[in-house]
Design a protein around this nucleic acid. Structure first.
Lengths: 196, 196
DNA sequence: TTTTGTATGTCTATCTATAGGTAGATGAAA
DNA sequence: TTTCATCTACCTATAGATAGACATACAAAA
């Protein structure tokens, strides 16, 4: 792995654990076996560095989700609404349980009032992309789903957006509460509610 | 108002906007018209200061909610489940719309991995108290509510805890997304979903 | 083939600003 | 005359950032 990528990895992990302002170039440098001036060689300043982290994180996360219109299960059938939700919840569950850390953008979003504009803008992109992904995925499934056939089509997108924002918000909040309580079962309570 | 309270006010506001590590004693001092050494007169160190902020915040928040077993509406009737939920959602809506700031504990929870233990412990108390409040309030209403009569009583508390954690998580997440997006309507989308 | 040039990645050393915190003087109030 | 609340002055550590030296590697020119 390139040094640049190592720096991004370390920075991401540290921010997810402690927040933007608790991470310094020196600390990142030490953890990657170089000096802080070498960190500045790759990223002229902290804003650039963290912006790169957020962009890469967003990309990776969306890749992990896959294309919202190409989700098929083991039998080759298009995902149902419930399967989409379950798939989406799993992405966050993994992030929490595998890395034992919050979502990067939950942390940055919480601090967003004190971040460089560029960083909070990228954080917002993460949120908006997630909402888009969910709406797109749910939309394609909803047309095949009888339960929504009563809904006027003009309102469908609005309704799905509400669902999407709700899911994203609940999952972000669940990770925060779960981590603060030191109890992963808190996350599962929310995850289960979302799949009811 | 006492200088001590002024310091707590300013500190709370600043943390809610920018996070724990973006707030310094000097900044707090300047905003309250004193010197940083005077801040240390009231609070020997930052951990003490922020712990006091969190405790006061939790107290105030619970006071604002009222006693969970004494909630009555205009007609003098005990709150229904929906009324309880609506009452609870309103408490956060106020915090967001009046102060234009996140919940203090959403911010601290997100940073909790990098906070002094004492501070994150107090943050956790906020979360647990909220969950308790909701479970207690919902419990008293659920006994009167037909829709839950099928539920086995032994499972009721578990079920209500799931609902409570879910609501808290969704509201915290909604505030974060809303603030990052600079769009309060995001919060309302979630609030409406929770009251469906 | 040797030399020279240029880019890459790293370092040491350093700057300025700010952080958290302390010591101890001072003046007003009880 | 002691307590309270404030100040000035200061300390040490760390933050973000920069300048410029140095080594290596590889490519073009002599």
């Amino acid at each position: 792995m390139s040094k640049r990528d190592e720096i991004l990895d370390v920075t991401e992990a540290m921010i997810r654990q402690k927040g933007y302002n608790a991470v310094s170039a020196r600390e990142v440098a030490t953890a990657t076996g170089i000096k802080s001036s070498s960190v500045h060689y790759y990223f002229p300043n902290k804003t650039d560095m963290v912006s790169a982290v957020v962009q890469r994180y967003t990309e990776n996360f969306l890749n992990q989700l896959g294309k919202p219109l190409e989700l098929v299960n083991a039998s080759g059938d298009k995902y149902s609404v419930l399967e989409i939700k379950s798939h989406y919840v799993s992405a966050f569950r993994k992030a929490l349980k595998r890395d034992k850390k919050l979502c990067l953008c939950a942390v940055l979003g919480a601090e967003s009032g004190g971040l460089p504009d560029e960083v909070s803008a990228h954080t917002n992109v993460f949120f908006q992309s997630n909402i888009n992904w969910l709406v797109t995925a749910l939309e394609s499934s909803s047309y095949q789903d009888e339960s929504t056939s009563q809904t006027l089509e003009s309102n469908l997108k609005e309704t799905l957006t509400n669902t999407a924002v709700h899911m994203l918000a609940a999952l972000q909040g669940a990770m925060i509460i779960s981590q603060t309580a030191g109890d992963q079962a808190m996350f599962d309570r929310v995850a289960n509610e979302l799949l009811k």
